[in-house]
Amino acid sequence: MADVPSQGVQEPFDLIRLSLSERVFVKLRGDRQLTGVLHAYDGHMNLIMSDVEETIMIVEPVEGAPEGEGIVRAVKRNLDMLFVRGDGVILVSPPSRT
């Protein structure tokens, strides 16, 4: 382990470490997702992000439509500096390199 270079992805959290100070995509429980600049994280996937845009997917039931189906509406919100509790985090995705 001592010779492993500090860069490069050896384990999942390395991927998040290399995304520090970059814009990341975060998928959360409750049909929520965030994009924002990542500044801090810990082993629980608690995050601190800035310049965050939150998108909430809300399914509005339509009369006559089967249970669980309806019109999906996206509600967006902007937040300057945000702590995100790790228990709601499903995935953290680094910025696309394209």
Binding site: G30, H39, I48, S50, L79, D80, M81, L82, V84, R85
Partner: peptide
């Protein structure tokens, strides 16, 4: 779920 923080204090 979230805590909104004062940007200037971070």
């Amino acid at each position: 779920r979230y805590v909104q923080l004062p940007t200037s204090a971070v």
